[in-house]
């Protein structure tokens, strides 16, 4: 009775389905490594170059010894009022871009939510439209709108609105799909019309979600708006390109510091508001 149970050769073969999975697992790793190797060539990635550059970086930051003031530091705030005005315009662009996106996004989200969409065709088409809107980068859209309506903040606002509408509509529709069906049924049972079910059954339930997602996108729109000026779509971005092209790195540094502070303030403020939502 002592050793008989463990004396024989145990069967170490895993069951067939598991074996197949293990093989697939190994193939997947081979595939991932192959993908990484493929992606390496053509990108001119070079770590030696990065480290060689790092040694010179203090020169970039603080300027050449023989040319004082040619680096990024100390920042040059002489044109502060102008930068501030442009920073505020950047934030204004984000505000209106986000608001227009909400106005566009709410009806789209109703059509793109499984439980409120009138039928599967509308649902699918709206979903594809939203994919399309999200797929268009703000930057690319800004280029298009600059051509369409001219230079300035307005094309920037339109670019933000279109891209964000796609994102918000998708997020809102997820909120709609998560509503409590009991509350909906109760509103329906009063004899309410489909529109009334939306305004009195669905809407009260998704308000916190809508506000929270809107603020979240507003934060990221402020960040996005800071670079739209690079393509002439208004805001502080134009001043970054202008100063860097003119080798006025100290001015660029001042602008970047202002952007960082503004983004930090906006994020903190909106995070506070979002925390208070119930």
């Amino acid at each position: 009775m002592t050793n008989t149970g463990i004396a024989g050769t145990p069967n170490l073969e895993p069951p067939a389905p598991l074996k197949r999975r293990l093989l697939l697992n190994r193939l997947m790793w081979v595939g991932i490594v192959a993908l990484l190797i493929w992606a390496y060539f053509g990108t001119e990635m070079s770590f030696p170059r990065l480290f060689a550059g790092a040694g010179e970086s203090w020169k970039l930051l603080f300027g050449e010894a023989d040319r004082p003031g040619s680096g990024f530091f100390p920042p040059d705030f002489r044109r502060f009022p102008e930068y501030l005005e442009q920073m505020l315009i950047t934030i204004k662009m984000a505000i209106w871009g986000t608001l227009l996106a909400v106005i566009l996004g709410i009806p789209l989200s109703v059509l793109a939510a499984r439980n409120t969409s009138p039928n599967i065709v509308v649902y699918t088409l709206t979903r594809r439209l939203l994919d399309f809107l999200r797929g268009l980068n703000e930057f690319v859209l800004a280029l298009v709108f600059v051509v369409a309506v001219g230079l300035g903040p307005f094309p920037g606002i339109l670019a933000l609105a279109v891209h964000t509408a796609g994102i918000l509509a998708k997020l809102f529709s997820e909120g709609i799909e998560a509503v409590d069906t009991g509350q909906i049924e109760a509103v329906q049972a009063t004899g309410a019309s489909p529109l009334q079910v939306l305004t009195h059954g669905v809407w009260p339930q998704i308000v916190p979600h809508v506000v929270s997602m809107t603020l979240y996108r507003f934060e990221s729109n402020v960040r996005a708006a800071t670079v739209l000026g690079i393509v002439g779509a208004g805001g502080i971005g134009f001043y970054i390109t202008e100063s860097i092209r003119g080798f006025d790195f100290r001015a660029a540094c001042a602008i970047i510091i202002m952007i960082l502070i503004s983004v930090f303030l906006v994020d903190t403020l909106s995070a506070r508001v979002r925390q208070r939502l119930t």
Partner: peptide
């Protein structure tokens, strides 16, 4: 829907719209 107005319904889980 018009007929339904004359029939009130009360639910096991109350189904009030919670945020109103």
């Amino acid at each position: 829907r018009l007929e339904r107005r004359r029939i009130g319904m009360v639910f096991q889980s109350f189904n009030l719209v919670k945020r109103l």
